[in-house]
């Protein structure tokens, strides 16, 4: 369960006050499939970063699974991120010198999980995501779609409760986009909460719940 209570985030850019989030309250229940859309600069990325604990609000409260994470320390936030949150980025952000398998195992590696245990968790994912023949390849030897599948595998290997995707198809062709969205929807059907930030209405409109953000406020929240 994700719960934002009157959350605001204000940036000061060139002496001007920019309200990236202006008194936003939002509840996302487990297993939901939510898309966040809106024009550039509307604050949707800030909203996603806040949900992912990369950004902390200036005011308001954020309850993640009942725990108030607004006042946690840097190290505690890192700890929560490593356990509960999976990230997917527009530019994949794979480590170029690591193989597909190593990239997928990176969150476990950072968490101090041993090599054997990592392999027993990454190999089924590689198979499920159709990457078993590419597991020793490095990112530059993979197609865009394959790279994003590696990134998704990396985002879910530590079994997070929520998957946050920032323009996951922004850098992919139409065919690969469809592939990736199908994969994300599959994960959602298996019970994972999915939040996608996108420009692409075709992607956004597939979500069951569609939130539109304008000027740091929720303009519309279409629930099924």
């Amino acid at each position: 369960m994700i719960e934002l209570q009157h959350v605001s985030r204000i940036f000061h850019v060139g002496g001007q006050e920019v309200r990236a989030m202006d008194n936003i309250s939002l509840t996302i229940t487990p297993g939901e499939y939510v898309s966040i859309m809106g024009p550039s600069g509307s604050g949707k990325s800030t909203l996603l970063n806040t949900l992912g604990l990369l950004d902390t609000p200036d005011s308001g409260h954020y309850l993640l699974e009942g725990q108030d994470v607004t006042s946690l320390s840097d190290a505690q936030l890192a700890q929560v991120r490593s356990q509960k949150i999976g990230f997917i980025f527009q530019f994949f952000h794979l480590v170029p010198r690591l193989s597909a398998q190593q990239n997928i195992e990176l969150p476990l590696m950072l968490a101090g999980v041993g090599r054997k245990e990592r392999a027993t968790r990454s190999l089924p994912l590689l198979t499920a995501f159709g990457l078993e023949t590419r597991r020793h390849h490095r990112p530059d030897e993979l197609s865009g779609g394959q790279r994003q599948r590696v990134a998704i595998a990396r985002a879910v290997i530590h079994q997070p409760t929520v998957l946050l995707a920032d323009e996951p198809t922004g850098n992919l062709d139409r065919h690969s986009s469809g592939d990736i969205i199908n994969l994300l929807e599959q994960l959602n059907q298996d019970g994972l909460t999915l939040v996608i930030v996108t420009h692409d209405p075709e992607v956004g409109n597939r979500a069951r719940r569609r939130i539109r953000v304008v000027d740091g406020t929720i303009d519309s929240d279409l629930k099924p």
């Binding site: 992912g52 990369l54 840097d74 190290a75 890192a78 700890q79 991120r81 490593s82 356990q83 990230f87 952000h93 480590v95 990176l106 969150p107 950072l110 968490a111 990396r154 530590h158």
Partner: peptide
Amino acid sequence: LCKALGAG
């Protein structure tokens, strides 16, 4: 990325 993935 490492920070986003939970590295302190």
